[in-house]
């Protein structure tokens, strides 16, 4: 058994939370550059320029990319040959979030759902843990903003609705969201599983690097079809009208019940914040 100390987990989560909030991924920056050149709307091109300048300032001056520093989602892939010592695994992650948001001057955006009292330290993070083969621990920290999360949906379709129904669900979600999720967005789509699994697949789909095609050629083709449909809406950067409503659409699928066709659609603003490390 390989041992990993709980304090190492806390330290890693703290650093990832701060890095994710200050540094936009190179893949996103490349996509924004393309938008700044190719967007037909002058106002849209100006939005792309502002977002690129924003990313430059955030990284250089250690400002958060956005004042909404998100609810912290953590994906942990825990090797089954790892033994966590010196503390509680889940609490070690929560403590990392607590320290990262305090020391990083990040906004604490979590509250009690009924009293609306702020929890004060951006905990509890939402933690998804998967036990995998091996003796490593992979941690991915994903601060998720409220604006784009609020416009996300899960649809429980009838199997007879098939691909046209799925396409309509995705287009409807983006259309009804309009300017609210801060387009240009990345659209994560999860098809299959159960109610919660479709939503989780949609969120995981957002983690794939931009510019890297889906490894399944059939899914890659469907992603291109969805991207075209979404961009034909004309919503554009910030909803002011334009060609780039979404930068990309990412699909993840898994088998579902013969009676079901669950579809999760998770919208992500340009601040696609996720950073990972392997311990």
């Amino acid at each position: 058994m390989r041992q990993i100390d709980a304090t190492a987990i806390t330290e890693a989560v703290k650093e990832l939370a701060m890095a994710a909030n200050y540094q936009l991924g190179e893949d996103v920056i490349a996509a924004l550059r393309r938008g700044a050149e190719e967007e037909e709307s002058p106002a849209g091109r100006e939005i792309f320029r502002q977002l690129l300048e924003n990313a430059r300032i955030a990284s250089k001056e250690r400002y958060p990319l956005c004042q909404d520093c998100g609810l912290t989602v953590v994906f942990a892939e825990l090797g089954q040959e790892v033994h966590i010592v010196g503390g509680d695994f889940t609490e070690a992650i929560q403590e990392g979030v607590r320290q990262g948001y305090a020391q990083g001057y990040l906004r604490k955006s979590l509250c009690h759902p009924l009293t609306r009292q702020n929890t004060g330290d951006n905990t509890p993070a939402v933690v998804h843990t998967e036990i995998v083969p091996g003796d490593r621990l992979k941690l991915t920290v994903v601060p998720k903003g409220g604006g784009s999360e609020n416009m996300s949906r899960v649809f429980m379709l009838k199997p007879a609705q098939g691909w046209p129904g799925i396409k309509e669900a995705v287009v409807t979600t983006v259309r009804e969201a309009g300017p609210n999720p801060c387009p240009p967005v990345i659209v994560g789509v999860g098809i299959g599983g159960t109610l919660e699994q479709a939503a989780l697949l949609a969120k995981k789909a957002l983690l794939r690097e931009l510019g890297r095609p889906n490894p399944d050629p059939q899914l890659a083709g469907l992603e291109a079809e969805l991207l075209q449909a979404v961009n034909d809406l004309g919503i554009g950067p910030q909803g002011l009208g334009g060609r780039f409503t979404a930068l990309e659409v990412h699909l993840l699928i898994q088998p579902c019940h013969i009676a079901s066709l669950p579809v999760g659609v998770n919208l992500q603003c340009h601040a696609a914040r996720h950073k990972e490390t392997v311990l």
Binding site: A43, D232, L233, G234, I235, G236, G242
Partner: peptide, 17 residues
């Protein structure tokens, strides 16, 4: 502008509030 800007660039039906 959220209505008129989008209308200018829409290529598909059904762009509503």
């Amino acid at each position: 502008l959220y209505e008129e800007g989008v209308r200018r660039f829409a290529r598909s039906a059904g762009v509503t509030r």
